[in-house]
Amino acid sequence: MTETLRYALIMLAAGIGIPILAALNAQLGGRIGSPAAAATVLFVVACGAALIVTVATGGMGKLALIPAQPRHLLLAGLLVAFYVLSITWVAPRFGIGNAIFFVLLGQLISATLIDQFGLFGAAVRSVGPARIAGLCLMALGVYLCQKA
């Protein structure tokens, strides 16, 4: 299996997991009456899983390097918290499909801007007419899948 295919399959699995995460956490939040508490449970389980992988891969010593890193890099944790809290609260009210549609639309827009300007150290990939057309087709496809 080529590296490209392996990476694509890993990210496909991650993408498949996002709506499942939303549905499961929304249901947990509804059952216990607190989307914030459900998000907390999710993060505790996720932290435990990440810790197991860190230990298994010999990365515990790398945690000592965190205090020396630029503080803005830690904002990623706030973005994850915002996503989990918002999807847990919004999905039962708006629908899993609708919520994920707007998540995907936001991802398309954000990824395009990051690539265009090389933000956050990403490689620059200019956005030309063909890429804009492709992004529009992707957005339209996601919209049609939701409306069909």
Rank of each mutant, 00 (worst) to 15 (best):
I96N: 04
M60V: 15
Q116G: 02
A64H: 09
A26L: 06
L65N: 11
I96Q: 07
A13P: 11
L42T: 08
K62V: 15
G17M: 08
F101T: 04
Y7M: 03
I109G: 03
I32W: 10
A91F: 02
L113R: 00
T4Q: 07
A37S: 01
G15T: 06
R6G: 11
T88F: 04
R71I: 11
L140N: 09
L104R: 03
T57Q: 07
R131L: 11
T57F: 08
T88N: 06
V80Q: 01
L73Q: 09
V45E: 04
V90E: 06
P129C: 05
L140H: 14
A99T: 11
H72F: 10
A111I: 04
V142M: 05
L12R: 02
L105M: 08
L79Y: 04
I10V: 05
I87D: 07
A148K: 12
A37N: 02
A39N: 09
I100L: 13
A123D: 06
I96R: 10
M11R: 09
P35K: 14
F94P: 01
R71Y: 01
S110Q: 07
I100N: 00
L75S: 05
A39I: 06
A139D: 01
F94H: 06
A23M: 05
Y143G: 13
S126V: 10
T40M: 15
G61T: 08
L108W: 06
T40Y: 10
P70Q: 02
G29S: 13
G58S: 03
I20G: 05
I10R: 01
C47D: 14
A14Y: 03
V44L: 13
R31Y: 07
S86A: 15
R31E: 11
L78Y: 00
A99W: 01
R71T: 05
L12H: 07
S34M: 04
G128Y: 05
G141P: 14
F43R: 05
G15E: 12
V90D: 06
G134Q: 13
V44A: 15
V55S: 01
G30F: 15
V45R: 01
A38Q: 10
I10T: 03
Y83P: 00
R93K: 13
P92K: 12
V103P: 03
V90T: 11
A99L: 00
G118F: 00
T54I: 12
I87Q: 14
L104T: 02
I100Q: 04
N98D: 09
D115T: 01
L9M: 09
F94G: 01
A81K: 01
S110T: 13
L105K: 02
Y83E: 06
T88S: 10
G59C: 04
R31I: 02
I32A: 07
G48E: 07
